[in-house]
Design a protein around this nucleic acid. Structure first.
Lengths: 212, 212
DNA sequence: ACGTATGCGGATGGTTTCATTCCGCTTATG
DNA sequence: CATAAGCGGAATGAAACCATCCGCATACGT
């Protein structure tokens, strides 16, 4: 209903807005949603004023990043489903396209503040739920294929992934990036269904366990 | 040289000091070394005044926690080496005795502030180096046994472990604890040497990669 | 090419969050 | 019981941070 508020932006303003969102995506993914606004502005190459003119406060920014990102991930997920031969491969591909998914998880289930915001906005909450559903389908599918170990559930994968990817502070860009990619590899090998797996303690964690 | 400054403490003071250290261990391990001092005091069941009387500032507290903790871990590691049948099993046991080791890693390589402090104190730096050496021995040993995948090094294990264990904020104690234990299990399975492993990208990360 | 509405950066003010200190009261100890 | 040792937490000051405002710059319609 709100017309399209973005079309009427001046070209440079539009560009800045996109840069801000991109910067926020990167930073939120790496450090969580509570970083100083100024840091985001700097990363985007704009002044704080510009940031605040476009997004009246942090919550607005988080909301915008969330829609933007959930959209991307859902698109990626559907592409993966369509193009990959199996649910397992689709899941792996999704995990390797990590930054976007990492951010989704970060927002959807790690940062308490982000979570509160998302839940208070029905449209975003719907996206979040859809994402959980899609991941759930991959997980169950891959298990049915006999490739993903059966003693895990979507919550396990999400938690594992989200925790792994919080970037370690104060390491070289170089090492950090490599460490992340290697950790994902190890994690994936740990998720495979193979005879040598030890049974995991407790019960499988579902999407519902991520909520409160 | 400093006599023994602890023997001359009044009984209750001594008890409080221990509680503070215990609380700091738990909290540092879960949230890193930058939590408000007051939170530590509260967790220890004492006033901030008491905390500051015993440890003049945060650095002193971090130092104290570090010695205390490196000592424990080194003891545990030696016990593991003596009592377990193989290096692989010793490594696993160490990883499962997680809280202590997690804190060591957190202090020794994750928190930049802690790292700076540790390095400026020769005695603690020595402990840290010794710990890295011991882990290194386990890693190489387990690889020689053919049980640990050969495309990882100590740095990988440390990073994997440290990142995994940063507790997720705002989840029930119950779920958080279970998630941690399950993640460790998955990670260990990912570290096993089995035919299904995909080769990891980049190069193996060593202890040296953790420094800067 | 020009006038103007739109947008920009970053200094600034007010607020919150922390670290650290201080002091009147409590308690272990001999 | 006297007293030195210890305790809690309010008070203080500094730092970090959010959000606003305004003089200057730039895109865009004509």
């Amino acid at each position: 209903m709100t017309a399209d508020p973005e079309t009427r932006l001046r070209a440079d303003a539009r560009r800045n807005r996109d840069q801000i969102l991109a910067a926020a995506r990167t930073i939120f993914a790496a450090q969580g949603a509570e970083v100083p606004m100024e840091e985001i502005a700097r990363a985007a190459g704009v002044g704080v004023g510009t940031l605040y003119r476009r997004f009246p406060d942090r919550d607005a920014l988080i909301r915008a990043v969330a829609v933007d990102n959930f959209d991307r991930v859902l698109r990626d997920a559907k592409a993966a489903r369509d193009q990959e031969a199996s649910d397992w491969e689709a899941l792996i591909r999704l995990l390797h396209q990590s930054m976007e998914l990492q951010l989704s998880i970060q927002l959807a289930m790690v940062s308490p503040r982000a979570l509160a915001i998302l839940k208070s906005d029905p449209a975003i909450k719907a996206l979040r739920d859809e994402l959980l559903l899609v991941m759930d389908a991959f997980v169950r599918g891959a298990q049915a294929e006999g490739r993903l170990r059966t003693d895990v559930a979507t919550g396990d994968v999400a938690i594992l992934f989200a925790t792994l990817l919080r970037q370690m502070p104060g390491k070289g860009e170089e090492v950090a990036r490599m460490a992340t990619r290697r950790c994902i590899g190890i994690m994936i090998d740990g998720l495979r269904a193979v005879g040598t797996n030890e049974p995991l303690p407790g019960r499988a964690l579902t999407g519902a366990d991520l909520d409160p």
